[in-house]
Design a binder for these strands. Structure first.
Lengths: 354, 354
DNA sequence: TTGTATGCGTTATCAA
DNA sequence: TTGATAACGCATACAA
């Protein structure tokens, strides 16, 4: 009757299953299942017998089996560029927090950070049949394609970024408004020749912030062509490069202020200036975007635009759970925009000449 | 014969299964399984027929089923305090990178950051039956118990921290050596009355660094009791509190230097000093530990001890995979210690008086 | 109210 | 070499 099952059977004690619980409680398998999910009626006496058995046996459901049966994984994915950028890390914390409230786990995918293509992860994620995904693309080009591939594996909601032609629910921040205001702050100090340090062009946030900056320029009567442009990749390093390239221009063409689409690049400018002996804001002004904690730690403190990173992650995850729960209805395609807040500190002053 | 399976059956096209592949390729189920895992011999013709079918159907294995059958999850867990601390974020990236190379996913658990107890996660993790876990405890007290609970769910390897009485493989950094050197740097400038800002006392790293500091003091002929001590929680905020508390001491008792067990708290000191109009390093010196990127961005740049965060995460994950792969052998309990490197910058100067 | 039986998609055992 | 077929642990339609 009993078969040989390898020595594991004898040494490591098997994890108890529902069957064990049923036997121990002297009820049938389905009764156990009923009380565990209250998916059916069951008498008081039997119910507590089951609960007891669960406790004494230390039973925990085998999620793999349940998953196979119900097609729900109790796990969602989170794909973002990296974690070293605190803005992303905070989004991750938000997602994590929302997931914890739903008794679900989140698997982390940072293709950029580990030198893998997003495709690597779409394959893995597809096999694992997760319940859904929160997606924050990096500006590496193939975003639409990977997004589409991702969507095949389950519902996805975007956070922070948007992808044209990929209409899924999303939660973003008011990039354009924040950008306009922080730029106005710069121009109101009298700057005219500014450098705009963009992010990857394919990114929605870059585009939004750029148009915010342009609105500000228009308002101050500055032609778009008067500004200098540099396309970075959101890393500190490209801020350094931007400064290096633009600051060695002849005095008359050199920008007096740097407007960066994120803090990391702004801090790159800081680093360059420090090494080059340039003073901020006396010699050049700089502003960023995100308000990561380093922004308020550097000297002079960086003026920037605060985004509610953690909350964005939290809400995005919540939207995802909402979709998952009622996967029948016609997936009301919502886009929620959270307000940004410009925080003025000490990194802007009038340009040197006047 | 065919049953009603809900409208899902008709609308959303079912994901192809091995059975579909078998039918399409005109072979049996087991043949498909054989070629997919090469777990059995199969003729050339049939093999390529199967492969073709896989391609045209776009088949991807159902990991839940495979998991149920094989008891392997192709997923590991990573539990750490939070992600906003870049040091932890980098460890996470390292784990993620190693996992990606093994075709496995990593689920993120940050109990501290989401206001849940570690128990919340041990329950979840246990159910999900992951293959293992990389664990970096926070100093919240119950670490041994949670560690033990965690270990019941599968192999665990510690990273960065160690837990007394919990003997599992681990990868840590040479905290004591680094601590000694950075402290010597401080004392060599003539400081005698220093403040030591510790982490939670239960933490191994705190203890190690503290004894490193003590070694340095001994070497400079300073009694342990000459130093001031403050116990923080690794967050920037507690650095602020440490400064607030210790700096309002009467001049003769006030510390002239702060030695912090991590950068975040050191930066908290920075923030306090700035707000209080104290100059670093002219008025007070400060050093940290970790070398997160903000450390080199603040002014003056913070002298600190670099830990190979990313590599630590990577190696920890690799050890975990090693254990998982040969779960028979007697789990050679290894502890690898990576070197630290003190990086001297500008945050230390002789004490005001001389 | 409770129990029996079937199937979820794979892997693995055993005959053929 | 190949193909039936029995688990894996759970949820549920259906019978009792």
């Amino acid at each position: 009757m009993t078969k040989y099952k390898g020595r594991l059977e004898m040494s490591e004690q098997r994890r108890p299953t529902m069957k064990d619980v049923a036997r121990h409680a002297n009820v049938s398998l389905s009764t156990v299942s009923y009380v565990l999910n209250d998916s059916g009626p069951v008498g008081h006496a039997r119910r507590s017998r089951v609960l007891d058995a669960v406790r004494v046996l230390g039973y925990t459901p085998n999620e793999s089996a349940r998953r196979l049966r119900t097609k729900r994984a109790a796990t969602v994915g989170l794909m973002l560029p990296d974690l070293r950028n605190q803005f992303f890390a905070l989004i991750a914390e938000g997602v994590e927090a929302a997931a914890a409230n739903q008794e679900t786990l989140v698997v982390l995918c940072a293709p950029e950070a580990v030198g893998k293509t997003p495709e690597h992860y779409v394959r893995l994620l597809r096999s694992q049949s997760l319940d859904g995904l929160v997606y924050l693309p990096s500006g590496d080009g193939m975003t639409l394609n990977t997004a589409l591939a991702l969507a095949e594996a389950g519902p996805v909601v975007m956070v922070d970024e948007l992808i044209r032609g990929f209409d899924v629910p999303s939660v973003v921040a008011d990039s354009r408004g924040g950008a306009r205001q922080i730029a106005e702050h710069v121009f109101s100090h009298g700057h005219r020749r500014v450098a705009i340090v963009e992010g990857p062009e394919s990114l929605w946030t870059s585009e939004q912030r750029l148009s915010g900056y342009r609105e500000a320029m228009a308002r101050f009567g500055i032609a778009p062509s008067e500004a200098l442009y540099f396309t970075g990749d959101h890393q500190e390093e490209s801020g350094i490069r931007a400064a290096a390239e633009l600051l060695k221009l002849p005095e008359s063409e050199r920008p007096t202020a740097f407007i960066c689409v994120n803090d990391l690049m702004a801090l790159g400018i800081y680093r360059y200036c420090r090494d080059a002996g340039l003073r901020i804001p006396a010699d050049i002004s700089v502003v960023g975007f995100d308000d990561i904690s380093a922004a308020s730690l550097v000297a002079p403190a960086l003026s920037t635009v605060r985004q509610p990173a953690r909350e964005m992650g939290y809400m995005a995850a919540e939207q995802l759970f909402h979709i998952i729960d009622q996967s029948d209805g016609p997936e009301e395609q919502r886009m929620v925009t959270l307000p940004t807040e410009v925080v003025l500190r000490e990194s802007v002053a009038p340009p040197p000449g006047g």
